[in-house]
Each structure stands twice: as C-alpha cells, then as structure tokens.
C-alpha cells in the first residue's frame, strides 16, 4: 500500500489558492485530495473546487416525509376514536391543514440540520490520520493529500502559485 503524505501550505489571498488548486488538479490530483482551511468562508469560481451537495433535496424529502407522517397520524387519530360530528367529516384537511403545514416545515428544518451535520463531517467519525492545520490570522491553508513518496512536484506547484510556506507531514 502506497504511503500517504500531507502537504500543509499557507497562502495570503484566495486567488493564489485558486491558482494552486488549478495546477494541482492539472497534475492529476482530485478534489478529494484537496482541502482549504480558513477563518471565513471562501468563494471560488465555479469549477475550481466544487463541492456538490444534496442538501436542498434532503430538505424537501424531510419536509415531505415528516409532513406526510404527521398528516397520516392525525387522520388515524381522528378515525381511531370517531367522535360524533353530526354528519361532518371525521377528518378534515381544512381543520388540520395548519398542523400538516407546520410539521412539513419542521421536517425541512430537521432534515436540513441533520444533513448539514452529516455533509460537513461534524457528525461523522473523523479520519484522525489527516493532520489539521492551525490557520494563522489573515491566512488560508491548503492541505494536499499525496500518495507515494513524490511530494517534490506538488510542493513546487504550491510554491509557484504563491504559497508562503509548505510543510510536509506524514499521515498521523
């Protein structure tokens, strides 16, 4: 099994990071090998380091599932003990529509939050072999995962893109 090495590099501006990412991807590294660390969110142009997400879909699905379950539950509860309604329907959507709506929204809220925890990796078991850089103020760190012992080329690419420092770290 090939050994894994990490390069931790520091940059002063995001254009330099974008340039480094371009070069590294052209050299054959995938987006899964690259991670940017910063004290604030960094927006790159489309195609630089895209992170596709299904959060919107999950949110909608959560809304549908919880809303449907709540509606079915209300329908079941209304029919479970059929009160005398004087000929009016036992279950009425008009009468319970608010509950359906609120539960649908609750489903969307919970699904969004749950998927955020999953997608961000905060909820998943962390890969403790990956070194996490401490980001100095006003800096952006780029972590590059290299397989094999050849780190000279990625290091050179990082430096040529404008990295102020590049540190080599073995897998923990």
């Amino acid at each position: 099994m090939a050994s894994v090495t990490y390069l931790l590099s520091e940059f002063r501006d995001k254009d330099a990071v974008a340039s480094a990412i371009h070069s590294l991807r052209a050299a054959g590294l995938g987006t899964g090998d690259l991670d940017v660390f910063s004290e604030e969110p960094i927006e790159f142009r489309r195609g630089v380091l895209d992170r596709p997400s299904h959060m919107s879909l999950v949110s909608v699905l959560g809304a549908i599932v919880v809303g449907s379950v709540a509606t079915l539950f209300v329908w079941w509860a209304q029919n479970n003990y059929a009160v005398v309604t004087g000929g009016m329907p036992v279950y009425s959507f008009w009468g319970t529509g608010v509950i359906t709506y609120e539960m649908t929204m609750l489903g969307a809220v919970l699904a969004t939050f749950g998927y955020f925890l999953w997608e961000s990796g905060l909820l998943r078991k962390r890969d403790k072999t990956k070194p996490v850089p401490i980001v100095p103020p006003e800096c952006i760190c780029l972590r590059v995962r290299c397989t094999g012992d050849d780190v000279a080329r990625p290091t050179a690419l990082l430096r040529s893109a404008g990295a102020t420092s590049v540190e080599k770290r073995a897998s923990l």
Partner: peptide
C-alpha cells in the same frame, strides 16, 4: 474551518 464545513454551513 475546512471548505467542506464552510460550504455546508
């Protein structure tokens, strides 16, 4: 503070 976390947030 990784970009994955920021994007998700």
């Amino acid at each position: 503070g990784s970009d994955t976390e920021w994007h998700a947030l």
